[in-house]
Design a protein around this nucleic acid. Structure first.
Lengths: 116, 116
DNA sequence: AAAAAGAGCAACCAGGGGGTTGCTCATAAA
DNA sequence: TTTATGAGCAACCCCCTGGTTGCTCTTTTT
């Protein structure tokens, strides 16, 4: 069994990741970073609806959740996606769905035993 | 450019789903609903850290995001998970990761062409 | 050396979200 | 028919979040 002590505490962490993705602007930022690779703040601001400062704040939020990271290059700072956390989030959803499937199975076997 | 009009609007919808999952209490509720099947509010409140009203509010939030639904049974209301939205959320994450992979490929071929 | 571009910082504001308490309503159990 | 259980509604509170504006700092560019 993978991920033995997937520890209830882990769930909390994933909540933070989902919260970070739970904003349209941030989700768009992540998508853009994935589509076009590492970019500067100004570039990420272009075409968007919010100010540069807002974008900065969102990037910091994403960084806090471990979804992006940045590094300075000359006078600009480049941001890139950290795919690991994304993968973890996916696994979390997978696990939940899996539990649901198990529950369904259990339920079905109960019904069968009942009508037998 | 791939993914022509994958409708930016879709992204927004997923943000709502992630936002719903982006709270530890709600995420736990979803997990419990998946583990133990449809349950009433009082049952979902047991063992938790918050009041029944809080649970109710969270359930409504999840309902708004399309993640759960409910039906009355006698004097109690049973809540169950709607797996469809969960699946959609997963697909959203998959798409994003996929775009990232494509970007990596593009980048790699660029580098190769450059050093050739 | 002067001008412009990219970022960072701080203060401020409005709104929403999570939580609670108190009361009422309806249905099932005694 | 009482009584107790499960749930709904409404008001209220606090604080966090998303967004803005204004200023400063550093690094290019001209």
């Amino acid at each position: 069994m993978p991920q033995k002590s997937a520890a209830p505490g882990r769930l909390y962490d994933n909540a933070a990741v989902f919260a970070a993705l739970g904003d349209a602007t941030r989700l768009r930022l992540v998508a853009r970073l994935c589509e076009n690779g590492p970019q500067s703040i100004v570039r990420l601001t272009e075409g968007g609806e919010v100010s540069r400062q807002a974008v900065t704040k969102h990037l910091r939020a994403l960084e806090h959740a471990g979804l992006v990271r940045s590094g300075r290059s000359g006078r600009e700072r480049l941001w890139e996606v950290r795919t690991q956390r994304l993968a973890e989030a996916r696994r979390c959803l997978d696990q939940i769905s899996e539990q649901w499937d198990h529950a369904l199975e259990r339920l079905r076997s109960l019904v069968e035993a009942d009508s037998r």
